[in-house]
Design a protein around this nucleic acid. Structure first.
Lengths: 225, 225
DNA sequence: TACTTTTCTTAAAAATGTCTTAAATTTTTT
DNA sequence: AAAAAATTTAAGACATTTTTAAGAAAAGTA
């Protein structure tokens, strides 16, 4: 994961960068709003840690510009102000999280993990793997070893959703929301039908990976022994 | 993050709870001052949204009692009155924020985020531990060491409730309210049945943790030596 | 001890959630 | 416009969970 830290207090910036690198992130640092915005617009970052008070361009402005340009990268706002109105403003501008200085390391790490996770981990190859299966999110092909089968769009979306969540349970509600949007009449049965389809196809490629159901909650991808 | 909403207008309470859950909070609802206070005193909440006008015990009184007991959980007061004196009274009684009805969703969310953040807690996992056992509240799996067993939804809810209250006694009444809703026909026997089920499962994983009965009151989780 | 109350445990009934089809409908491709 | 593919609907079978109910056991009381 590649992170951008935009912070003008050099000491703090270096300290944060150091900690993040220690935690296996690739970290770039910008010391003022202008270069921060330039970097952020590149779209190569998975999470941006952004101070509000900055020289040249302030954090809120950067955030608005990013969102205005359609850059949806998760942003954690950093600030000394604990003013409520300020927070609301930040969040309204499209921040994903908010952290007041001084903050502790664990807290920052936890939030970065949380946001990074939300993004998932599709590499530029469009290949997504779990256990013995691979899904090409572009060609919609599911493969296990040499065996391969085509998925329909909905099937692929569902599988991708489950794969991104690895061993976590994906609530049925969330699946509906993701695949059909949440105003829809879509019923739980839709999900069940597609789970059934997918299981058949997983079976077809003789995968050891299965979709197990957690009754009353949802589904989770598990690797069988 | 775990929130408590204390609001007697059922419609509003449900709507708020729904929105909050959508935003990944764990939400409990109490429909009157008495059960609101009981719940609040448990100390398991990160933020409490508290209506002022309530049956049985009013919000201000609840707030004072909480602070009197040394419970410092952030409280957002909710009220139809936009009366300034009321606001002052609320803040003097130890409220952290104040929101006049009708309020918009974003505003409420922003304030909760702001207050929750102050606590510095962030929900990073759905694992809950007590003594030698761990409950995954998402996959509904109870484990002790390498041994593991699946729980049903109700079993998991009950265990979670007990685990959150650690060594405190969970009154049967409160358990009913939490698992079956506050106006249900649910009888004490329901709880007894589920306690029985759970004990069997705790036994199954050879846990030293047991549910002990406090006759006439309720149940509590205890670790046996 | 005898009696009352509360809790525990079970089995079976009822309710609910899930799976699997096939057919109907919609969308896309030819 | 016809054919093919994908999606949605619907219904019955099936599985699991929840509820009910009733007697046994345990705890409290006189």
């Amino acid at each position: 994961m590649r992170l951008l830290v935009v912070e003008d207090e050099i000491h703090l910036a270096e300290a944060v960068a150091h900690i993040l690198k220690k935690n296996n992130y690739t970290v770039d640092v910008a010391y003022d709003g202008e270069s921060g915005l330039d970097n952020a617009l590149s779209g190569i970052y998975d999470v941006i840690v952004l101070d509000i008070m900055l020289p040249k361009i302030d954090g809120i402005t950067i955030l608005k510009r990013l969102r205005g340009e359609g850059v949806g990268v998760p942003v954690i706002l950093l600030t000394a102000k604990s003013d409520v109105s300020d927070k609301v403003l930040g969040l309204d501008s499209g921040a994903d999280d908010y952290l007041a200085k001084p903050f502790n390391t664990e807290e920052l790490l936890a939030r970065i993990r949380a946001l990074g996770r939300r993004r998932g981990e599709i590499k530029d190859t469009n290949q997504l793997s779990f256990g013995d299966i691979t899904l090409n999110t572009s060609s919609l092909k599911l493969s296990r070893g040499a065996e391969e089968i085509s998925l329909t769009l909905k099937e692929a979306e569902l599988l991708e959703f489950l794969m991104l969540r690895k061993n976590m349970v994906a609530p049925k509600e969330q699946i509906i929301e993701k695949l059909w949007g949440f105003e829809s009449e879509a019923e739980a049965n839709h999900v069940e039908v597609y789970v059934s389809f997918l299981r058949k196809k997983l079976n077809f490629v003789h995968s050891k990976t299965t979709i197990s159901t957690v009754r009353g909650v949802g589904y989770t991808l598990t690797e069988q022994e």
